[in-house]
Design a protein around this nucleic acid. Structure first.
Length: 345
DNA sequence: AACACGGGGTC
DNA sequence: GACCCAGTGTT
């Protein structure tokens, strides 16, 4: 299939930008003129929206900006406060990286270009292109899930590689309005060219869309094979009460930086492993194991964690749970003690 | 190039 | 249950 001629390119850009000017989303981080968005608000939003849907990101965005209205406020905050504001949002490395990067920006100022953004922790190819184009009108095309889907359909490419998507996004990018163009493609992908039920009849690009012409837009791009979900089992102890419990900071990559009930993983295939784990855990904590409180299971994208929760006494001092940043998993574990307080859904 | 990394929406 | 979401960092 031939690529667009220069004349077609002009019409395609005009069609999408015209649609965007009428139908672009009014989002709280689109503060300031096109191509000159407020860098702090745009940055927080871009990080927050990594692998997070806009509808969901909206609530977290408001909460985060209430907590840290400026990059200086963010830079000056302790990491626990940042994670507390991020609590429940997932991918907590984003919050840790954003915090570190904010300290750099507070000291040295905002990056001046794409390469400068890219050097910040937590800013990769997508976010650097987004921020340089949205805040500085730099001609860098974003490549995210929306762009990938829109371009895969436009060219009826079932398995677009990142390089293929980037090359086509670069070609299509409107050099006169790069910031608006990037926002436009993402808005189109999020509202019209959706994964499941695209509204091709309302799409400004349908005259050029090969997938629409074939009548099978949802076939592009083909679903990616996903690795199997791993089952993880651990024992955990509740020392104190659900409101005032002993907590430990989770180290490592899984939920790193968050607080949680002291825990110890075990292999459920080994008959005695659970008993050994609770004994070893209590031994490490200098605590005395008590009765079992039950178990909770929490599904993540790539893990299914089952926490077997025991009561225990002694050991580390309980602390105020409401002030700590906890994962959903630990919230569920604490709820074992207070099922009656759980609001009806 | 392949993994690891949350949590929730939607079909 | 499958698939996805304004991806990044590590191995």
């Amino acid at each position: 299939m031939p690529d667009f001629t220069p004349a077609e390119l002009t019409r395609v850009r005009s069609a999408l930008l015209g649609w965007f000017d009428r139908n672009g989303r009014d989002l709280p981080w689109r503060h300031g003129p096109e191509g000159r968005r407020d860098p702090y608000r745009a940055w927080v939003a871009e990080v927050l929206l990594q692998q997070t849907q806009v509808a969901r990101g909206l609530t977290y965005y408001q909460r985060f900006l209430d907590s840290f209205p400026t990059v200086h406020a963010l830079a000056a905050a302790p990491q626990e406060a940042v994670l507390k504001a991020w609590e429940g949002c997932g991918y907590y490395a984003r919050a840790r990286n954003l915090h570190r990067a904010a300290q750099h920006v507070a000291a040295h100022g905002y990056p001046h270009d794409h390469a400068g953004w890219l050097a910040l922790p937590g800013v990769g190819p997508y976010t650097a292109a987004a921020l340089s184009s949205l805040t500085q009108n730099a001609a860098h095309a974003v490549n995210d899930g929306n762009v990938r889907r829109v371009l895969a359909r436009l060219h009826a490419h079932p398995q677009p590689t990142p390089a293929w998507v980037q090359a086509h996004a670069d070609t299509l990018l409107d050099p006169d309005r790069p910031g608006a163009w990037n926002e436009a493609v993402m808005d189109l992908g999020a509202t019209i060219c959706t994964p499941k039920a695209p509204q091709c009849h309302r799409c400004p690009l349908s005259p050029w869309c090969q997938a629409a012409a074939l009548g099978t837009p949802t076939a592009y791009p083909a679903p990616k094979p996903r690795p199997a979900v791993q089952d993880l089992h651990a024992v955990a102890v509740l020392i104190g009460t659900p409101e005032h419990a002993a907590l430990e900071e989770r180290t490592g990559t899984l939920l790193g930086g968050l607080m949680g009930l002291p825990s110890q993983s075990f292999d459920p295939a080994q008959p005695a492993a659970q008993a050994q784990a609770i004994a070893a855990l209590c031994n490490r904590l200098h605590a005395t194991p008590g009765e079992t409180l039950g178990q909770v299971t929490h599904a993540m994208t790539h893990r299914r964690v089952t926490l077997h929760v025991y009561r225990a006494t002694g050991g580390p001092a309980p602390q105020d749970v409401s002030r700590a940043a906890l994962s959903r998993l630990d919230r569920k574990a604490l709820n074992l003690m207070t099922p009656l307080l759980t609001p009806p859904t």
